[in-house]
Design a binder for these strands. Structure first.
Lengths: 120, 120
DNA sequence: TGGTATAGTATGGTATATGATACTAAGTTA
DNA sequence: TAACTTAGTATCATATACCATACTATACCA
């Protein structure tokens, strides 16, 4: 049975991981989520296994071509998203979450629980 | 006994919470963590119960007066940090994490686990 | 001939984030 | 008298993030 971790224990583990690896893994993840459209795009992608550019543009309200492209490129560079290009006419592209990306969902789930608890 | 939540179940709960409240709680939390110094400052604050401005400036390498002030003000506005001012000479200020702020640690712990798993 | 479809890129602008440096008050200590 | 202390603020400069709009290629379909 899994015991809930204490605050003190977390700080202990976190401190150790920082001093060992040099960079903080938590900060690294948070920096992957920086940007206005990261969260909406990841959310839209979690709703479908495979998504195409045009579909994402519809499902993420307000995003421009430029920002959607930038966001997807960054997510791809961080290994959270996979991009597959089909050179037909008209050409199209299929986006999907990688395992690394899908495994963020326990993080998001903790965020969701926290958010529901402290929503005003 | 707590069962680990599945990806599909998470998406179901997340979708429901978005449509009910209008805004996504996960996005709201992520936006509280936007900014270069949020994570380092929160980390430094988690190491001590009470921290003073000058102490934070030492423990967060590279931060300027301006950015530290801005970051602390935003964290305070989001209810994650408490600020208490003492009007002595010289005046000083004590910063601490609120309950809301301390309860982020399960989120950070999930981030830490993910980060350690996918660190390159 | 002209419209449709796809996944963007190019360009130029505004807005926000971040940074560097100097400066403040007012009592205490050297 | 001058330096020290604290927690910032003020000012200006730079850098990054974000936005709006127009444009591309190429085959297919009407």
């Amino acid at each position: 049975m899994e015991q809930p971790i204490t605050f003190e224990k977390y700080v202990e583990i976190a401190s150790a991981s920082v001093t060992e690896s040099g960079g903080c893994p938590v900060t690294a993840l948070i920096s992957m989520l920086q940007g206005k459209w990261k969260s909406p795009v990841l959310y839209a992608m979690s709703l479908n296994d495979i998504v195409r550019f045009g579909e994402l543009k519809k499902e993420v309200p307000g995003v421009t071509n430029t920002m959607l492209t930038t966001t997807l490129r960054e997510l791809e560079a961080d290994g959270l998203v996979h991009r597959e290009q089909f050179n037909e006419i008209p050409p199209h592209v299929e986006y999907s979450l990688t395992e690394k990306g899908k495994n963020l969902f326990p993080v998001f789930y903790e965020m969701l629980k926290w958010g529901l608890k402290y929503a005003e």
